[in-house]
Design a protein around this nucleic acid. Structure first.
Lengths: 154, 154
DNA sequence: CGTAAATAGTCAGTGCCCTGATTAACTGAA
DNA sequence: TTCAGTTAATCAGGGCACTGACTATTTACG
């Protein structure tokens, strides 16, 4: 009786969107490397030598999750972890040659996959799609870090 | 060097959107009941006595995941499972009074949360947001079940 | 200097999400 | 009727995502 139409719930749609993407990724990109793993490889291609926490920040993964992802990539020989000599708490991360090769190979496939994924939308709609999602996600993330004061002077 | 801008990757955006939603749900709706669990409660309010697989179909969860979610809801006393006397493979699902009460309580909160979540968008933009996501998700799901023939005659 | 606060990472625990294999029950055609 | 194929549910296994508690290191203040 008092049920609700889930198709008007953004959370439900977001979940379905991500599931759809997961499936397509698996068939069109890789069954070995997942999308978050690719994001980490990509971050380390852009900025080699980042520490774990910063990589997590770049790709949007919390400290626990990024630790697991990195440990998997390490086990597969795609990256190396070295203690930061300047700061004994940090590990500095760097892709291996194998990691760089893997990243390069996947770039092509992800591009193809994104095309297929977004094919139902016109080019203009795709731009709107990105813009709207980004704005909602950014705003919700902003709610997390409550009011960083713009001025810190006494 | 050859790195990619993840903010143009729909999968990455979808993941961030879902994470943002997860966080907001936790603070504004419930720390006990998750969004997928609410979807299941909602499906059973709409159609009491559904079997497990069909509920999964309604809310977009595969057979393994729906089994876990339902077992959790059962442990908390929010629903009952009974063997279908007509078909010994099926379990028929029905909310308990407690389950119905929980669902009713959460409806109000999810509505509030959706408002906050979508606040960065104008009303027109919200409609576009729903439309675009739904079209992309539907199309990608369609790729899963390859070409169901429109006509089955010989 | 020395200790308290902050920070990087790990670990345990919960929950979602999928695949592939298995079991039990039903259905249909020879 | 019998047996092969289908279907509902479970289980094992891998991966993502978060919280809260803990360790080790660094930094900053008194």
């Amino acid at each position: 009786m008092a049920a609700v139409d889930l198709s008007t719930h953004p959370g439900h749609l977001a979940r379905r969107l991500q599931q759809a993407h997961y499936l397509l990724w698996n068939t069109m990109v890789s069954e070995e490397i997942t999308s978050p793993q690719f994001a980490v490889l990509n971050a380390l291609v852009a900025e080699p030598g980042l520490d774990q926490r910063t990589v997590g920040e770049r790709v949007g993964l919390d400290r626990s999750t990024i630790a697991e992802v990195i440990s998997r990539l390490g086990r597969r020989g795609l990256l190396d972890k070295v203690r930061d000599p300047q700061d004994g708490r940090r590990f500095l991360l760097r892709l291996t040659d194998e990691g760089v090769r893997t990243h390069r190979k996947l770039i092509v496939r992800t591009a193809r996959m994104n095309q297929v994924f977004l094919a139902p939308l016109s080019t203009e709609e795709q731009a709107v799609f990105f813009d709207l999602i980004r704005r909602v996600a950014d705003a919700a993330e902003g709610l997390r870090n409550p009011g960083e004061p713009l001025v810190t002077q006494p």
